[in-house]
């Protein structure tokens, strides 16, 4: 089948043509949909990002222009937010990986003998998905607020300065991002580690490798595809997130991320070109980082 292009004779020549008609029929609706509602929006973002205000127009009125200056202004004004977004996202990704790897290893490798337990633990991992993302974050805000027993306890034990806060700080935002994206990290790690052939670990230790060497030389390289997809699934949404950093949630005055700026420019001040330019920058930086990361870790066939 796969090699039918090499076949001779009329009967075979007709077959692929008929097949590609079916393929077209199957592909067309979905692809058109994505073009119309994914590609065209990206293009209109690019167009919007170059727009200039209509002279003497209302707020939110812009006209097509080629105003490169928008990008310069945006970087000057919001450079800090851009850097902060990626800093927070990188930290959250690292913490989520450190948190998830042992957990995924336990579920995927150690618990293999008890499939029911394994499945129950997986349900626990995805359980946070079943309750609103926003409510989860608000719950943490209450649990970690200044009046909460966690924080007052820490203060009583002098582990925290009496006038210190947790909510509203950068630490709280990174904490929130980490918590919210842990399942995105654990699941791909689990599905990878679950296929890990433990005989390879035995082979490693049989060949005079200490447990930690076996771990770093055998287990980690073998789970690289899982790590890569987990990192991507965590980093991308974390970089664009604006819930955790919002002042109504875990953030404060100095924690606004690029997502917050895009939101307020687009939906509040109706400053569309700025929001669009920021979106394009965010997308471009993420694509570059993802491409470099995927190339370097040698797992290019993720999709």
């Amino acid at each position: 089948m796969a090699f039918s292009a090499f076949a001779t004779g009329t009967a075979q020549e007709q077959a692929p043509r008929r097949k590609s008609k079916i393929a077209l029929l199957l592909l067309l609706p979905g692809i058109l949909y994505l073009m119309l509602f994914f590609l065209v929006p990206l293009v209109s973002l690019v167009i919007t990002s170059f727009q200039a205000p209509v002279p003497y127009g209302d707020i939110g009125e812009f006209q097509t222009a080629f105003k490169w200056q928008n990008y310069v202004d945006v970087v000057n004004t919001y450079g800090e937010h851009i850097l902060r977004s990626f800093g927070y996202a990188i930290l959250a990704t690292i913490f989520a990986l450190l948190f998830s790897y042992p957990l995924a290893y336990f579920i995927g490798v150690k618990a293999r003998r008890w499939p029911l337990l394994q499945n129950l633990m997986l349900v626990l991992v995805i359980a946070p998905f079943f309750i609103s993302f926003l409510l989860r974050t608000l719950a943490w805000k209450s649990i970690l607020s200044d009046e909460s027993f966690v924080i007052s306890g820490l203060k009583a034990l002098s582990l925290m300065a009496p006038d210190a806060h947790f909510t509203g700080t950068a630490a709280a935002v990174v904490f929130g991002l980490t918590y919210n994206f842990i399942p995105f990290m654990t699941l791909p790690l689990y599905s990878n580690l679950q296929q890990l052939d433990t005989r390879l670990l035995e082979a490693g230790s049989d060949l005079y490798s200490t447990p930690s060497k076996t771990f770093f030389k055998v287990t980690v390289p073998l789970s690289m595809t899982g790590i890569v997809s987990g990192v991507l699934l965590t980093f991308i949404p974390a970089a664009g997130d604006y819930i955790n950093a919002s002042r109504d949630f875990l953030g404060g005055t100095g924690t606004a991320m690029i997502g917050n700026v895009i939101e307020s420019n687009f939906l509040v001040t109706l400053n569309y070109p700025v929001a669009a330019a920021l979106s394009i920058i965010l997308m471009a930086v993420i694509l570059v980082m993802v491409t470099v990361y995927v190339k370097r870790s040698g797992t290019e066939d993720l999709l």
Binding site: S44, L45, P237, A239, G240, G259, F266, L282, I286
Partner: peptide, 23 residues
């Protein structure tokens, strides 16, 4: 084309569509 929507932050997807609807 199938991979990109998953690699695009939600803000960008949201803002893009909103820009299209606006236009």
């Amino acid at each position: 084309l199938l991979f990109l929507p998953m690699a695009t932050p939600e803000v960008v997807l949201g803002a893009g569509l909103a820009a299209e609807f606006l236009g």
